[in-house]
Computed example of a mutant assay.
Amino acid sequence: MQKILVFTDAFSGGGAEEVMGSFCSVLKSKYKVLHVAKWKGPKNYPIPYWKISLNKKSLKKCIPYVIWIIVRYKPDIIFTSTGHNNLLFLILKMFYFRKLKVIIRESSVASVMNSFTLKSRLINKLLVKPIYKRADCIIVQSNDMSNDLKVKYEIANRKIVTINNPILLKNTALLSTPQSKDENSIRIVHIGRFSVEKGHSRLIQIFKQLPEKYTLSLIGDGKLMDNIKILAKGLKIDDRIEFLGFLQEEKKLEVILKSHLVIQTSYVEGFPNSLLECLACGIPAIAFNVPGGTREIINEKNGILVEDNNIAEMVDRIINTNWSNYNKEEIIEDVSMRFGIEKISSKLLKVFHEI
């Protein structure tokens, strides 16, 4: 049985970590899987495969341990996710472990994601562009991501495989539990870490223009949360906004199921798990039409796409759409057929079989 070494920032927490965890569960049916992470992550549920948490705050401090694990474990394939991890293992392949097969998973539209800061632009130019070509295979989640790697990074088409993120709901019992919604107010939910690319600032500007019957629940944490709280307070709308922080799945589902719609205001996305989660609960969506997988998820059955950064149109569509007209069962059936774990699993196993 071939050995796979999987490396992520954590075992749970963000979308990339959740997806990689589900992929590990699929791969362990055919391979011996060792999952190594910088730290264990915030969620508490059992992981049904061999795992090692290095309990380190930075990737740099993980390097000696990673090299030792590769030497001792002798994996046939390395599977990593997110840019900094991908770069590390591709560099190790270049200089130390040339016979290793390395499969990387890109988590967003790379050229856009790497454009927000001077540091990321330099890393993109000096490292990502030349080194990503060393990967044996690159898994992306959307057509935009695939085209970005082909055009902006000149990656060979044969190395790129598109595998959508699967629906990751584990606790589905709540879905069949009747949920009461306050019909005197309209509750909007947004899920995502507080970072620049998630567009919380423009979300607050949108919410400022909505009537008082609208409330906003923000799930997630991050460095920019305090800045967004200050912005909301300055606009005198903080009394209608809940800053809920990171929530375990059951609590998160309770908030989602009490909501009338989910909103996404990101500037770029890979294949947004939070959007899939809400749709899998039957909650309709509204989002800006940005690079990434959002435009492949939202259709006429489940929501509305708005021209990117058209704040006026976003406000108008939120106010003038009868969100109760969307059929919950149709939304759930549609996303389950397109992004169920069974469909995604077969594509993933094919990649590892053919590498």
Rank of each mutant, 00 (worst) to 15 (best):
T8K: 02
A10Y: 10
A16K: 03
G21T: 03
K32E: 13
V33S: 10
L34M: 07
I47F: 01
Y49Q: 04
Y49T: 07
W50M: 12
S53G: 06
P64G: 12
V71N: 13
V71E: 13
Y73D: 03
I77W: 04
I78N: 00
T82Y: 08
L92N: 06
V102S: 07
V109S: 10
S115I: 10
F116S: 13
L118R: 14
Y132A: 05
Q141P: 08
Q141G: 14
N147L: 15
I155P: 07
I155V: 15
A156G: 07
I160E: 06
T162M: 15
L168I: 13
K170V: 10
T172Q: 08
A173G: 00
P178R: 12
N184L: 06
N184M: 03
I186E: 08
V189D: 07
H190V: 12
S195E: 15
V196H: 06
Q209V: 01
E212T: 02
L231F: 13
A232D: 05
L235R: 04
D238Y: 06
D239Q: 11
Q248M: 12
I256Y: 02
S259D: 05
V262E: 12
T265G: 01
P272Y: 01
S274H: 00
C281T: 04
I283V: 15
I283S: 11
A287I: 07
G292M: 03
G292I: 02
G293Y: 14
T294P: 09
I298N: 07
I298F: 07
I304V: 15
R317A: 08
T321C: 09
N327G: 02
M337G: 03
F339H: 05
E342C: 01
